[in-house]
Design a protein around this nucleic acid. Structure first.
Lengths: 209, 209
DNA sequence: CAGTTACGCTACGGGTCGTAGCGTAAGAAC
DNA sequence: GTTCTTACGCTACGACCCGTAGCGTAACTG
């Protein structure tokens, strides 16, 4: 699930403490809540986790990678409910995602690691694998369900369908993040309803055009 | 235009060097390009600008505020062209915004300062005033033009119209930023066209519903 | 048992932070 | 001009964090 730094399946020697692993990630989230991204230090995390600072560096290259892993697990909560209609499903996912973005550890970490990733290809890949693709999967899943329900047509052109899915994903995730973190206004049910209405109306019309 | 730290219009004493002001902001942008947000230091900026480090601290509280001001002026370039149709106008603005996000100094700085702003109310206000509201104005301006052209109805309910404008703004800005910085894929003409189609179709249908 | 790897701990050089102190520079008021 | 006031450059400083090296110990394998 989590990539970590190549644990290199060596059959000999003292094994890495999995308990320490979870303690470190938990401590990282706690430190994010208390101090925020910029004031979080490796030393503080180590102290909170009850491990030596060197142990952190044996597993993670630095703050960036550590925080990505610590936050990534929170995105496991995201699930696509089956509420019977595409509209209801989208709205529910939007609210789930918004709830995630309300948590202080997610707020302060998400934008920061993405900012770092603009100058670090490996970090970008890591974020994509452990966070972004997990969200994108929800979009693909939602489309499939909608197609099974007959709410969306089964597209012929595979390439075009993938482009549309990418577009939808950027619109949903982008809009929610921007609303929550840039505009800093609540993503409540009313907003989610209006957004979903806009999106699905556009999706239907765009598919026809 | 730029707020800066209260220049307190004192009529006496040596005036602050406006040349130094511009040199510092220019040096900040250069440092962002060369080093990126995380490795940018106040000392480096001071050296590049040819001023003492203390001079920076006399005008800006820290790195956050400095970078916001340095990047804010880049957003002055954004203009709403009058291309004759709402669709063409939206598409053009999207491409302009995308071009801004391709610049390395904007990429690395924008997400970082927003991340910081989640824990700093004053910084959030500064960003809103110098960057976000400047973008939002384009949305309001575009709506007005479209209404004058008869492409959009003049809404009665003022409050509802404001909510819709906010929604549109978050969708446009959010989608472009997400595409450019999270998905890290190009915002080219094709993408802008498909996005605009989706948005305007949704806008029309949502207004009807 | 020996071999191998992880751990905790300490200590270190190097870098950045933000500030204090001082002498000097540049305008304003008289 | 002289005096007043504020900005500037420069130096130096304690505080903090970084990332690593070195060492003795712990845990697990064969």
């Amino acid at each position: 699930m989590l990539s970590r730094s190549h644990p290199k399946p060596s059959r000999t020697g003292r094994p890495r403490s999995v308990a320490a692993d979870e303690a470190i990630l938990e401590a990282t989230r706690a430190s994010l809540v208390d101090l925020g991204w910029s004031k979080l230090t490796m030393g503080d995390v180590a102290t909170r986790a009850g491990v030596a600072k060197t142990t952190l560096y044996r597993r993670w290259a630095g703050k960036n990678e550590l925080v990505v892993d610590a936050v990534a697990v929170l995105f496991d909560e995201l699930e696509l409910p089956d509420l019977g209609s595409l509209s209801a499903d989208v709205q529910a996912v939007v609210l789930q995602f918004a709830a995630l973005l309300e948590r202080p550890e997610t707020q302060t970490a998400l934008m920061a690691v993405v900012a770092e990733s603009t100058r670090d290809e490996a970090l970008r890949t890591r974020i994509r694998d452990s966070i972004v693709n997990r969200q994108k999967h929800l979009v693909l899943q939602g489309r499939q369900r909608a197609q099974e329900r007959g709410e969306l047509p089964v597209e012929q052109d595979e390439a075009k369908a993938a482009l549309t899915a990418d577009l939808i994903f950027d619109v949903i995730a982008g809009a929610v993040v921007h609303r929550a973190l840039v505009s800093a206004e609540p993503v409540d049910e009313d907003w989610a309803r209006r957004f979903t209405l806009l999106l699905l109306a556009g999706l239907g019309a765009a598919a026809a055009g």
